[in-house]
């Protein structure tokens, strides 16, 4: 993976030239789906459109060469989250309503828009996607060390997995325990003693 990325030049000039077409269409798609997820009045419609949102996000992550993140997005966000939300909806009652979309609170929308504009002002300081001098890429102490030493240290090729299971193994143990605790918390909240 790393080799291919380096040989292409870290998203060098030839790639940047055509980035725009697919990136732009995926961005439009993702922003539209996010907007409609927030605006849909019916929760089921929101869940369905949220599934479409995660489709777009997975394609975007793939384009940015983050296949592990894309696969997690695909597996968790599209499949599991949708199913769990559906099961939760099945256990709740439906409110009667006529309107298709939520009414927007204009002052709140204005405040959010101002915050968004303020945040956008900081975008100029962020290095371009995949540029060679981005800190996350060029940091010789952490990132480059992982990329150079992963195979020698851990005998696996996937740096992401090496970081997760070896270099930051204790963190991952904590995360696994969090997942485990989530299962127990669901049992407690729903007043049950067995899963199945």
């Amino acid at each position: 993976m790393t080799g291919a990325l380096a040989s292409a030049g870290p998203l060098g000039a030839p790639v940047v030239a055509q980035v725009t077409a697919i990136e732009a269409s995926l961005f439009v798609f993702v922003v539209l789906t996010a907007l409609f997820t927030a605006l849909a009045r019916d929760v089921l419609a929101a869940v369905i459109i949220f599934g479409a949102y995660s489709l777009g996000m997975a394609a975007l992550y793939t384009f940015y060469r983050a296949p592990d993140v894309a696969m997690t997005e695909a597996a968790i966000s599209a499949g599991v989250t949708t199913v769990l939300l559906l099961l939760t909806l099945a256990k709740t009652t439906r409110l009667d309503h006529e309107a298709a979309f939520e009414s927007v609170n204009l002052p709140a929308a204005g405040a959010a828009g101002l915050l968004f504009a303020g945040l956008m002002l900081t975008m100029g300081d962020i290095p371009a996607v995949g540029s060679a001098d981005a800190p996350i890429w060029s940091n010789p102490d952490v990132t480059q060390w992982y990329i150079a030493e992963t195979y020698a240290e851990t005998h696996v090729e996937n740096t992401v997995m090496a970081v997760l299971a070896a270099f930051r193994g204790f963190d991952t143990f904590g995360e696994a325990v969090v997942v485990f605790a989530a299962g127990i918390a669901a049992l407690i909240v729903l007043h049950r003693e067995v899963f199945a």
Binding site: M1, L44, V47, I48, G51, L55, A58, T62, P67, A70, M71, A74, A75, A78, G79, T82, V83, L86, L87, L89, A90, K91, R94
Partner: peptide
Amino acid sequence: TFLDIALVYALLNFLMAIAISKFTVERG
């Protein structure tokens, strides 16, 4: 290797379709 993601997505797209469509009958 990106084809792996496509495969996962095809699988979960199918899951999503049958799950939501079955849910829409009498709303769960």
